[in-house]
Deep mutational scan, measured.
Amino acid sequence: RGFLEKAAVKKMAKAIMADPNKADEVYKKWADKGYTLTQMSNFLKSKTAGKYDRVYNGYVIHLD
């Protein structure tokens, strides 16, 4: 289950990176699912340092 969630989160993160207008909708879905910042950090780990920082930081702001 965790692997599928991670894959889904990364897919949506890539969608945000391609079209930032989708961010609020995606952040709301993640918040509704109760994803914590720790979970998001783990889901968005990448071999490329900083690749998903913008998405993660946007989610931090959304939760605030």
Results as ranks from 00 to 15, higher is better:
Q39V: 07
G2R: 12
I61Y: 08
W30M: 01
A8C: 15
R54M: 15
K45G: 08
D53E: 09
L44H: 00
K29Y: 14
V55T: 02
K29H: 14
L44N: 00
D53Q: 06
G50E: 06
E25Y: 09
Y56K: 04
K45N: 10
K22H: 06
E5M: 07
V9A: 04
R54I: 10
S46W: 05
R1Q: 11
Y35C: 06
K29D: 14
V9M: 03
V55K: 00
M12I: 04
H62Y: 15
F3E: 11
L44S: 00
M17P: 00
G34P: 08
M40C: 03
Y35P: 00
A7R: 15
R1T: 13
K33G: 05
A49Q: 12
G34M: 05
Y56V: 07
G58C: 05
L63H: 03
S41L: 10
D64V: 13
A49M: 11
A18P: 00
Q39L: 06
R1C: 15
K10L: 13
F43D: 02
D53H: 04
A13Y: 02
A7V: 14
K22N: 07
L37D: 04
K28T: 10
K29E: 14
V9P: 01
F43M: 12
K14F: 06
L37C: 07
G2S: 11
D24Q: 12
L4F: 12
W30K: 00
Y27S: 01
T48I: 10
V55Y: 03
M40W: 02
L37K: 11
K29W: 10
I16R: 00
L44P: 01
Y27K: 00
K22R: 12
T48M: 07
A23S: 08
Y52W: 09
K29I: 15
A8E: 13
D32T: 08
K22I: 14
A49H: 11
S46E: 07
S41M: 10
R54A: 15
D19A: 06
S46C: 12
A49I: 11
E5G: 08
V26D: 01
A8T: 13
A31E: 08
K29T: 12
E25F: 09
A18Q: 11
K22F: 08
A18G: 07
E25V: 08
Y35K: 00
H62F: 15
V9G: 01
N21L: 11
A18L: 12
D53L: 07
I16E: 00
N42K: 12
M17D: 04
A18D: 11
G34D: 03
F3W: 14
K29R: 12
K45C: 15
M12R: 04
K51V: 07
N42E: 14
D53A: 07
Y52V: 02
K28W: 04
E5K: 06
L63M: 06
K47N: 13
L37I: 10
K47E: 14
L63K: 03
N42F: 12
V55S: 01
T36E: 04
V60L: 10
G34L: 04
A23R: 06
K28M: 08
W30F: 03
E5F: 05
L37R: 08
G50Q: 05
F3L: 12
G58E: 05
L4N: 13
V55M: 02
G34H: 07
L37Q: 07
G2I: 12
T36P: 01
V60T: 06
V9W: 01
N21Q: 10
V55R: 00
L63F: 04
K51R: 07
K51L: 11
V55P: 01
K28N: 09
N21V: 08
V9C: 06
D64C: 15
R54S: 15
D24G: 10
P20Y: 08
K45A: 10
H62R: 02
K33V: 09
A31I: 04
A15I: 12
R1V: 14
F3A: 14
Y52N: 02
I61S: 11
K11R: 14
D64W: 09
K11A: 12
A8N: 09
K11F: 08
G50C: 08
A13D: 01
K45M: 12
K6M: 13
K33R: 10
T48A: 10
K51E: 13
D24S: 11
D19R: 04
E25M: 11
K10T: 08
V60N: 03
S46Q: 06
D64T: 14
E25K: 08
A15H: 07
G34F: 04
K33M: 13
N42C: 15
T36W: 02
D32L: 11
Y35G: 02
G2T: 12
K6W: 10
E25A: 11
N21M: 13
D19I: 03
D64K: 15
S46H: 07
V55N: 01
N21Y: 09
D32E: 14
Y59R: 00
L63T: 04
K51A: 08
M12P: 00
V9S: 01
G50H: 09
A7M: 13
P20N: 06
F43P: 02
M12V: 04
Y35D: 00
A23H: 06
G34Y: 02
A15G: 05
I61A: 15
R54P: 13
L44E: 01
K14P: 01
Y35W: 05
Y27H: 01
V9N: 02
V60I: 09
L63E: 02
F43L: 09
D24I: 10
K33E: 09
S46I: 06
A13H: 01
K51N: 06
M12L: 08
Y27L: 00
K28R: 13
M17E: 05
N57Y: 14
P20L: 06
A23D: 02
